[in-house]
Computed example of a mutant assay.
Amino acid sequence: MAITEKESQISEFKSKSGLKRILSACSYSIQGFQAAWRNEHAFRQELCIVVPAMVVALLLPLPALHRLALVAVLMLLLIVELLNSALETVVDRISLERHPLSKVAKDIGSAAVFLALMLAGITWIVILLPLVKAWFTA
């Protein structure tokens, strides 16, 4: 049976199927977290804030949906930071020379992190403000 041109262009890095694919994906994810921790100051700083904040969010006397929202926006912040770090790494892999398009790509990634951070802050304020007010008026 002849291999078609499209089949011959499939990357050797393309994942396998079944359990091996799942185990490989988990391994790659762990390696990604390790690389982010080792190489990305912003990720480390955010993680040092996000982990305790998640614990606080889960312990607060709030409805489950509110706790979920507090945790979700923190997870979203980490997700966007990881994607921004990946984008910056790819840009740097292409070239370390200063280039206007490289700057635009990195600035857009930074803007995405900023928006995720603002969303997290606003969500926490909106959900916690009534709780804080109740504590001080009780």
Rank of each mutant, 00 (worst) to 15 (best):
L82R: 05
L82P: 00
L83C: 12
L83E: 08
L83A: 12
L83F: 12
N84T: 11
S85M: 11
S85K: 01
S85W: 11
S85H: 09
A86Y: 09
L87C: 11
L87Y: 00
E88Y: 01
E88P: 00
E88T: 05
T89N: 08
V90C: 11
V91N: 05
D92R: 09
D92S: 14
D92H: 07
D92E: 12
R93L: 15
R93F: 15
R93W: 15
S95H: 10
S95R: 05
S95M: 11
S95I: 09
S95D: 12
S95L: 11
L96F: 10
L96G: 07
L96T: 15
E97D: 12
E97N: 11
E97S: 13
R98I: 02
H99N: 13
H99R: 06
P100E: 07
P100S: 08
L101D: 09
L101G: 00
L101K: 04
S102H: 15
S102M: 06
S102W: 04
S102F: 14
S102L: 06
K103P: 00
K103D: 14
K103N: 10
V104M: 11
V104Q: 10
V104K: 12
V104F: 14
V104S: 07
V104Y: 11
A105P: 00
A105N: 02
A105F: 13
K106V: 08
K106W: 04
D107W: 06
D107A: 13
I108N: 03
I108H: 04
G109P: 07
G109M: 05
G109L: 04
G109H: 02
S110L: 10
S110R: 06
S110E: 11
A111I: 07
A111P: 00
A111G: 13
A112K: 02
A112W: 03
V113C: 12
V113N: 05
F114W: 08
F114H: 03
L115F: 14
L115S: 10
L115V: 12
A116R: 01
A116F: 03
A116D: 01
A116Y: 01
L117V: 03
L117Y: 07
L117E: 02
L117I: 01
M118W: 11
M118G: 09
L119K: 01
A120F: 05
A120T: 08
A120V: 04
A120C: 14
A120N: 03
G121L: 15
G121A: 14
G121P: 01
I122C: 07
I122W: 08
I122K: 01
T123Y: 07
T123G: 06
T123W: 06
T123R: 01
W124M: 07
W124T: 08
I125R: 02
I125G: 04
I125Q: 03
V126P: 00
V126A: 13
V126W: 09
I127S: 03
I127Q: 03
I127L: 14
I127R: 02
L128T: 12
L129M: 13
L129E: 10
P130H: 03
L131A: 10
V132D: 01
